[in-house]
């Protein structure tokens, strides 16, 4: 509402543009605008700006809501998590859960009962990940176990590998150095994506443990915080850093993976 009944202030013009005024106050502003062309053109400009902002994002409202944002699905997942950790502490780890599920199938055939219920929930969790992370986890699952051909180009030809992947991704990338953390570069490969290509770099430690770094080019320059996700016995950190998005995946603990993610981030930024 208009506070000062004798004057029209700047705030009143904003309030007029934003439909915040009572009909009486609105007509007082309109009367004022009819006599003051400066203020009238100012208001017209704010109105235009507001229309542009609305136009820019109005399409979002018509888009179908992806499954991962369905409140009902999310609630199921959350409830299942709570149930699992309260009533079945032993089966907290998904690895135990899968072993138990396999045993149950062996022992009781079709009588899978609540095990079946839980595996359904696991697949819900999976479908809720963002596409980039989904692809990175799948690529890790496929290639980290590969003995004969884990990579297309060996880490011994690092220069060639980096040049090739940079060219195909159309953005300069680097292969981060992780020797200090005990990991050496096995090599890398190019992967198809629905809207372009992705690169996967693979690292291995002395004991043969492998981690993979999945890289794609960002459509727009942007950055994000580190985000964490896990699935089965895999943990992953992902982040966006200017031109490139990264997903670091490993079958190692979150605590072990986290310093590697930060180490990679620091090297890529420099």
């Amino acid at each position: 509402m208009i506070k000062d009944k004798n004057n029209i202030h700047h705030d009143d013009l904003h309030a007029y543009v934003d439909d915040q005024l009572s009909p009486d106050d609105a007509s007082r502003v309109e009367h004022y605008l009819s006599q003051n062309s400066d203020a009238a053109s100012f208001v017209a400009e704010l109105q235009k700006q507001k229309e542009q902002l609305k136009t820019l994002f109005e399409d979002t409202l018509q888009e179908p809501i992806p499954d991962r944002l369905s409140p009902h699905e999310l609630a199921k997942t959350i409830e299942a998590e709570a149930k699992r950790s309260s009533s079945h502490p032993l089966f907290n780890r998904s690895r135990w859960q899968s072993i138990a599920a396999i045993l149950a199938v062996f022992l009781f055939g079709n009588v899978s009962g609540w095990f079946g219920h839980h595996s359904l929930i696991a697949s819900n969790l999976t479908s809720q990940k963002r596409p980039m992370v989904r692809q990175a986890l799948d690529a890790h699952t496929t290639y980290a176990v590969e003995v004969l051909h884990p990579v297309e180009v060996s880490g011994k030809e690092e220069d060639h590998l980096v040049r090739w992947l940079s060219k195909r991704l159309q953005v300069p990338i680097k292969a981060p150095k992780l020797q200090q953390s005990g990991y050496h570069l096995v090599g890398g490969r190019l992967l198809p994506r629905n809207d372009g290509v992705a690169a996967q770099l693979m690292y291995e430690d002395q004991t043969g443990k492998r981690i993979t770094l999945y890289l794609i080019r960002n459509q727009e320059t942007e950055t994000s915080a580190f985000r964490f996700t896990s699935e089965k016995n895999m943990n992953a950190f992902y982040w966006l850093d200017h031109d490139v998005s990264y997903v670091l995946v490993g079958n190692i603990t979150k605590e072990a993976l986290s310093p590697l993610a930060k180490h990679i981030y620091a090297q890529m930024a420099s």
Partner: peptide, 16 residues
């Protein structure tokens, strides 16, 4: 979603 998209300027980040 609309607000998040306008705020972050990025579709995926907004849905996250």
């Amino acid at each position: 979603r609309r607000y998040a998209r306008a705020l972050t300027g990025n579709v995926d980040q907004a849905d996250d």
